[in-house]
Design a protein around this nucleic acid. Structure first.
Lengths: 208, 208
DNA sequence: TTCCTTACGCTACGACCCGTAGCGTAACTG
DNA sequence: CAGTTACGCTACGGGTCGTAGCGTAAGGAA
């Protein structure tokens, strides 16, 4: 969450955890109302009923604040066992798409990624707060598919890692691109077509 | 380019086309040096040797200006016939990745997309200036693959359209996500793995 | 040429946000 | 109790925004 991580109980007045929650909630509300570019620290402070200085005591700036405010949304993603690899993929695609329908996620995600191209520490923050939390879904889905016999167990560990990263980029990238760049809906039909393509490949999907 | 499109020859002093070029060039230079968030209209005007008011006479704001400044970069993308669908896909992936290596493209692309989530006219501008220019590559690649017999000709026209859009989102999305979100390089090895996945599908790529 | 029209450069302006400093007060610890 | 840290508040210099106003430059039309 905040920048400093007070180890154990320190002396002095403790930070208000209620303020933390109020600030992050206010940040999301401001994202919905104003969007990324018009969101200001002053506005968030006012909404949260907190002094502006308090924000700067906990976050370096707008970028870090928004990452933390949005990160929690991505924890909602789950991967219930739907019985087959195809169903699991389609399920997670629709779930991710639903997340990107939320205006606070839409406007914030790409903006902080854009900022991170010139800010390494922000990039790491995004990775640990958002990206890595999604990647676990890929690993879980693969395990299940392997247990079902739909995918074989990979011999080489580094090959397996590279493959998981690849699949993650393909799934997340396609959904993000469809939603934010092409700006068209990810509905059940699209998810179905995408799943076929991912599982069967270009020629295979055409045949089936 | 600029907002107003003077139909035919009008009376009065004509707009300087040299200024147009200088402004767009200055915008790209400013993107390289300062990045999206720190780029200001004043800075661009100074670099271009132009008054700030001239910028506002031609573009509504930073968003529109940057879209136009970056759009030309995407015209460099080509799709030479490399003899097979796999080679064509791999080629365009590496080409697109090389484009995203350029700092002015990295920092601008995601930023304007983020802004476009709250600005319909900007979204249309991005679509016509950037997105649609890339989509032609997918259509061309499919035609060639069909002529080679690697893909069959689709019966239904709307099916074919949906499929092309899907493939476009998958390719562009994966490359963008790998480059900007995962922040890892798109090298020949990754492009090869991605191409296998796209052509053969999850199970097929594992086998091959 | 002389008018007319539009673009340009320049200056100045109010409005807003940034990020920080300083101060008195509040809360918790030993 | 004293010591330490967080908080709210105010104020500030510095910067950007987008626009208005002015005189001048560069074309077309009479």
């Amino acid at each position: 969450m905040s920048d400093t991580d007070p180890k154990a109980t320190r002396t002095g007045r403790p930070r208000s955890i209620a303020a933390d929650a109020a600030i992050l909630e206010a940040t999301r509300a401001s994202l919905v109302d104003l969007g990324w570019s018009k969101l200001t620290m002053s506005d968030v402070a006012t909404r949260a009923g907190v002094a502006k200085t308090t924000l700067y005591r906990r976050w370096a700036g707008k970028n870090e604040l928004v990452v933390d405010a949005v990160a929690v949304l991505f924890d909602e993603l789950e991967l219930p066992d739907r019985g087959s690899l195809a169903a699991d993929v389609q399920g997670v695609v629709l779930q991710f798409a639903a997340l990107l329908e939320r205006p606070e996620a839409r406007t914030a995600l790409m903006a902080v990624v854009a900022e991170s191209t010139r800010d390494d520490s922000l990039r790491h923050r995004i990775r640990s707060a958002i990206v890595d939390r999604q990647k676990r879904l890929v690993l879980l889905g693969r395990e299940r598919a392997q247990a079902r016999g739909e995918l074989r167990y990979e011999d080489d560990a580094s090959d397996a890692d590279r493959n998981a990263d690849l699949i993650f980029d393909v799934i997340a990238g396609a959904v993000v691109h469809r939603t934010l760049v092409s700006a068209e809906p990810v509905d059940a039909e699209w998810a179905s077509g995408f799943t076929s393509l991912l599982l069967l490949g270009l020629a295979g999907a055409q045949a089936g």
